[in-house]
């Protein structure tokens, strides 16, 4: 029963891993994936010394850290708020409504951003004009790129990511709430001393998982949001690998950059996991 799953994983997940050696070889069209001559770390050195290296690193880390912080905190806040709602049906409605955007495709999300943020006629542009914000070209600006990217990420996924926290909150022993009330705690104190501690194990696990993707800025969304005006801030490792590899055919060089990305991510995952194990006894393995 496991045979198809093992075959597909071996071929399509471990197959490309075998091809990683290309990062250390000179790609040779005639010899195929694994036939080129060994060149050692040549392509890594080329990347570290390239003029793009620092700007790629800065953009990638900046975008992913900002997304990580807001994308991680917002669902926790939302879950705590929804948990305060009295009445099952209202609670369910709020929850269902907030995670609807999760299922919209990235292409449509970026398309919506374009019509809503288009200068002078977009819905959001017009709305902001009420508040005196005028003349910003949100889609073609280096300063607006990251806020637009992060806020739309939060808008799309906050509700969905809060489900798991709500599940954890619904498992809190009701006696704890009773006891806190008898001790005279107000609602804020209950959130602080009952709700948040109940969420910590889930938070730790999800935090480790996000750390494992620290350099994994979402390729598709950034790629779709890119234009020549915002490129100085929006060019990240994954879009660069696509451009020089798939579009530019520099296979060995882009494999090396991709491998660098994967290894950093993996290191972050392992480190975050070790820290969590020490600090809170929660870990992935």
């Amino acid at each position: 029963m496991l045979l198809p799953a093992i075959t597909f994983t071996a071929l399509f997940a471990y197959g490309p891993m075998y091809g990683i050696q290309l990062a250390f070889r000179e790609f040779d069209f005639a010899a195929g994936l694994t036939g080129g001559d060994w060149v050692g770390l040549k392509y890594f050195v080329q990347f570290f010394e390239s003029p793009q290296f620092w700007s790629l690193m800065r953009n990638t880390v900046y975008i992913s850290l900002t997304t990580l912080v807001f994308g991680f905190l917002a669902p926790i806040g939302l879950a705590i708020l929804i948990n305060q709602v009295i009445g099952l049906r209202r609670k369910r409605f709020t929850q269902t409504a907030t995670y609807l955007p999760h299922f919209i495709s990235i292409v449509v999300i970026v398309g919506m951003l374009q019509v809503f943020l288009s200068p002078s006629t977009g819905l959001i542009t017009r709305f902001l004009e009420f508040f005196g914000v005028t003349g910003v070209n949100f889609l073609g600006s280096t300063t607006a790129f990251v806020p637009v990217y992060v806020l739309s990420e939060v808008w799309q996924h906050c509700g969905w990511n809060s489900i798991i926290y709500l599940a954890a909150l619904s498992n809190v022993d009701p006696q704890l709430y009773e006891a806190a009330k008898i001790d005279g705690a107000n609602k804020l104190q209950i959130i602080r001393h009952v709700d948040i501690p109940a969420l910590v194990p889930t938070m730790v696990i999800l935090f480790i998982l996000t750390m494992g993707g620290v350099l994994n800025t979402g390729f598709e969304k950034i790629f779709l949001m890119q234009n020549t005006l915002n490129l100085p801030i929006s060019e990240v490792i994954s879009t660069y690998v696509y451009k020089i590899g798939i579009v530019g055919n520099q296979f060995s060089y882009s494999t090396a950059i991709g491998l660098f990305n994967t290894v950093i991510n993996f290191a972050f995952l392992v480190i975050a996991n070790q820290i969590a194990k020490r600090v809170s006894n929660t870990s992935l393995w």
């Binding site: 197959g15 091809g19 990683i20 994936l33 690998v241 882009s254």
Partner: peptide, 25 residues
């Protein structure tokens, strides 16, 4: 061990270019 075999692929992958070349082959 099989669970590890599968789960490992969630955190480590060959990257875009080796994948592309494999599909090509």
């Amino acid at each position: 061990p099989l669970m590890f075999f599968f789960a490992f692929t969630m955190f480590f992958n060959g990257g875009l270019i080796p994948t592309y070349l494999l599909y090509k082959e």
